[in-house]
């Protein structure tokens, strides 16, 4: 089926492996409506690159919304549960205690 509606999203992330991690974490689950939406996650250096194409603008919007929610989740996991962050909090609470 023709997929004339496309969107390329580039999200800059902090230097390091994060963009790669997010691309890998989100590539696993197949898009639910495979017949009407195609999707890919990749990264180049610290840039997360998401490509969407869909049969209709509506399908595109729904799918892209979902992707943003997932990216947001990944970023919050990294922001709050990265080894550096957890170790830092331990040091801080140690100093206080």
């Amino acid at each position: 089926m023709a997929m004339p509606h496309t969107l390329d999203i580039k999200i800059p992330l902090p230097p390091g492996p994060l963009a790669n991690y997010i691309a890998r974490a989100l590539s696993v689950d197949p898009e639910l409506s495979k017949d009407s939406v195609l999707r890919s996650f990749s990264c180049s250096q610290d840039m997360l690159e998401i490509h969407y194409s869909a049969t209709s603008a509506r399908m595109l919007r729904v799918a892209v919304n979902g992707a943003f929610e997932s990216v947001r989740l990944c970023v919050s996991v990294a922001a709050e549960l990265s080894p550096e962050v957890l170790d830092m909090e331990l040091v801080e609470s140690g100093v206080k205690g």
Partner: peptide, 12 residues
């Protein structure tokens, strides 16, 4: 949703 968190933690 939960699997995404598990994958991220596994890599981090």
């Amino acid at each position: 949703s939960v699997a995404v968190v598990a994958r991220m933690l596994s890599m981090l």
